[in-house]
């Protein structure tokens, strides 16, 4: 009598097919694999080094706007990295204050290159990781845009990263990039687009809802500000340890007052940034820069700037660098 094998041919064929698809996807999306499952907490995700060049890429782990620079800074060129979140990121590299900075510096007769390392949703923890890695590429100046509206998201993604890398079997299927991509496609392209928002919000575990709940909890802003304070301190120390000056930009929010008029609110961030100032650490208040202008026209919403707002910020940053002597000292 013929005995059955331990693994049936059908199961074996299915498994081989799965492995084949997985390998094909991994080869096809090789660039996308950098830090794929670290939720932004990978130390070097998105920084791809190739033949003396560093490419900032939109990978699974960190979604930079694509830019390239040399590993070693060009002789006589002032290199600036701008680390931040969606405010820094802007609608394009060219229109963001990070991208304009080089243009503004060149207009002042200073040879410069500036790079936008802003990633939407990144809070103090993930900004710190990006900053620490960027210091390896010897910038002449680092700009750190601090904010406190992404701390919930930062914490959530940190927990997800920790959970995902735990041993629990429920995470095993998603470690396959092929399954992961199907899942993400289903979630982002189908679930979010085909199911009305009110149904999603009333039934699914919705990130936006969870954030609203977290924000309404007592002392949330205080706790998040404390974290921003600690991590901004660590970031400035990391820069100073490499003798690289750092400019901390404190975010300002476009808020509605009780009398329906608009006002700028720093949400405690000015105090945090100011407390870090010392030799080599500067502070630029977004509130102070914009409140003397017609700021309502410079914002697209509560936090984000229009292109005109970015232009105003880049001019103010350059002025700050000149006033503080950082640019003239170097050049």
């Amino acid at each position: 009598m013929k005995s059955n094998p331990l693994i049936s041919r059908a199961f074996l064929f299915g498994a081989c097919l799965m492995i084949g698809v997985e390998l094909a996807v991994r080869i096809s999306f090789q660039d996308n694999m950098s830090g794929r499952f670290e939720y932004g907490f990978h130390p070097s995700a998105g920084f791809i080094e190739e033949g003396g060049q560093v490419h900032l890429k939109r990978t699974g782990g960190r979604r930079f706007r694509p830019q390239s620079f040399t590993v070693e800074p060009p002789e006589g060129v002032f290199r600036v990295f701008v680390i931040g979140d969606s405010v820094t990121r802007g609608s394009s590299v060219e229109s963001s204050y990070a991208g304009r900075l080089a243009v503004e510096l060149k207009a002042q007769g200073i040879s410069a290159e500036s790079y936008n390392l802003g990633i939407g949703g990144h809070g103090a923890r993930r900004k710190h990781l990006t900053l620490v890695h960027s210091l390896n590429y010897k910038p002449d100046l680092v700009l750190l845009h601090i904010n406190n509206s992404n701390e919930f998201e930062d914490e959530r993604e940190f927990l997800r990263s920790t959970e995902f890398n735990s041993w629990h079997p429920r995470n095993w299927p998603m470690k396959s990039i092929a399954l992961r991509r199907v899942y993400e496609m289903k979630t982002e392209k189908v679930f979010w687009k085909w199911i009305p928002a009110s149904i999603r919000m009333s039934q699914a575990k919705n990130d936006a809802d969870a954030e609203i709940v977290a924000m309404s909890s007592e002392g949330a802003t205080e706790r998040w500000n404390q974290r921003v304070r600690e991590l901004t301190g660590e970031s400035t120390q990391a820069a100073l340890a490499k003798q690289i000056p750092i400019l901390v930009i404190s975010q300002a929010y476009n808020m509605e007052s009780e009398n329906q008029s608009r006002r700028l609110d720093d949400n405690g961030l000015e105090n945090i940034a100011e407390s870090q100032t010392q030799k080599g650490v500067l502070h630029l208040s977004m509130k102070q820069v914009l409140e003397n202008l017609d700021f309502q026209t410079l914002y697209s919403d509560r936090s984000h700037l229009r292109d005109e707002g970015h232009e105003a910020m880049s001019k103010a940053i350059v002025q700050k660098l000149i006033d503080s002597g950082i640019v003239s000292l170097k050049k």
Partner: peptide, 9 residues
């Protein structure tokens, strides 16, 4: 068996 394998996948 190949069809079954594909369906399992």
């Amino acid at each position: 068996w190949a069809t079954r394998g594909f369906i399992y996948l």
